[in-house]
């Protein structure tokens, strides 16, 4: 039975992607070899490709939202569009009304009020999505053009395609590198997951954000596990996380120490567990992986 595992963090920069890359490597060494599809759902900051070194097989333009365009020749400069726009996207400049495509939400309110039908909606190419073959299995990833919206839609697309691939090839696991935060891209990435692993950081900010993402997962009914990265930076913080998780009935599955090998592996473009399997961080991640796998395979 195919399972979806998503790696999340709440706060950015806790080591989500380094852990995901290591999981992809470890899975390829295990009985799951050839059974994994990897998806990078952090489309704003798609970093997994920097470690998995994918060969891109297929590139597709991603059509994001639509934006309003004003036909200046027939525009009466009445200003009705600016009045109805709730996104501050219509700007008056030098006696003309112009649409700020970055601010435009694509609602078309301006289109419907324009007395001379001078406004139309145009779709925008907002990024690209890719299917690749990586060193640890098929990788579905994407790049959002800077500043584009609708990353939730692109996340959904990437994840759906990865999931369908897993179903088609009868693969056991979809491994998803999630986005930071708790909003639209996270909800899009986490929904339908069988299990979420939260990479928490034992910092004041990390604990706060971990609790928020746990709340989001609870809201959508996704079971969660927590591991603590850079745990030795502030052991009291690590204990605080473990206590807080215990109170919430969430299992913690290990502490990963701060280890300069992680950055070195990133520079080398490798998963840390492949780069130096005996480094303290690699050993700790491998232990976390075993527990995550056991939890994923345990009957619900």
């Amino acid at each position: 039975m195919m399972k979806q595992l998503i790696v999340l963090s709440g706060k950015g920069g806790t080591g989500k992607t380094s852990v995901t890359a290591a999981f992809a490597h470890l899975a390829a060494q295990s009985r799951l070899a050839g059974q994994v599809v990897i998806a990078d759902a952090d489309v704003d900051a798609a970093n997994l490709e920097l470690v998995l070194q994918p060969q891109v097989l297929e590139t597709q333009p991603f059509q994001g939202g639509q934006v309003a365009v004003i036909e200046q020749d027939t525009c009466l400069v009445c200003g009705g569009c600016a009045e109805v726009c709730r996104f501050d996207a219509i700007i008056e400049r030098d006696g003309q009304y112009l649409v700020d495509p970055i601010a435009c939400d694509g609602c078309a309110a301006c289109v419907y009020q324009c007395p001379t039908e001078s406004i139309r909606m145009e779709p925008q190419v907002a990024g690209k999505s890719y299917v690749s073959e990586s060193r640890y299995g098929p990788l579905y990833h994407a790049n959002l053009d800077p500043g584009q919206e609708n990353s939730g839609k692109l996340v959904t697309l990437v994840k759906q395609r990865a999931r369908l691939r897993a179903l088609d090839d009868d693969r056991q696991l979809v491994l998803v590198d999630g986005p930071p935060g708790i909003g639209c891209p996270v909800i899009a990435a986490a929904s339908g997951a069988d299990l979420a692993l939260i990479v928490a950081e034992p910092t004041a900010a990390g604990v706060h954000d971990m609790q928020r993402v746990l709340g989001t997962l609870r809201h959508f009914g996704v079971p969660a596990l927590v591991c603590i990265n850079k745990a030795d930076i502030y052991p009291e913080g690590a204990e605080e996380i473990e206590t807080s998780c215990r109170a919430d009935g969430v299992a913690t599955v290990g502490r990963i120490p701060f280890d300069a090998t992680v950055a070195a592996a990133m520079v080398a473009g490798e998963a840390v567990t492949a780069f130096r399997p005996t480094a303290p961080a690699s050993l700790a991640i491998a232990a976390v992986w075993e527990l995550v796998l056991a939890s994923l395979e345990a009957p619900a």
Partner: peptide, 28 residues
């Protein structure tokens, strides 16, 4: 600002006089 490079970041940056971009010296 929030992390990332999509709409929440743009909404925060709109109208700014200066963008101070904090990074770390890694490939990510």
């Amino acid at each position: 600002a929030p992390p990332g490079a999509s709409c929440p970041v743009v909404e925060t940056l709109r109208g700014a006089d200066f963008a101070l971009l904090v990074t770390e010296p890694t490939p990510f």
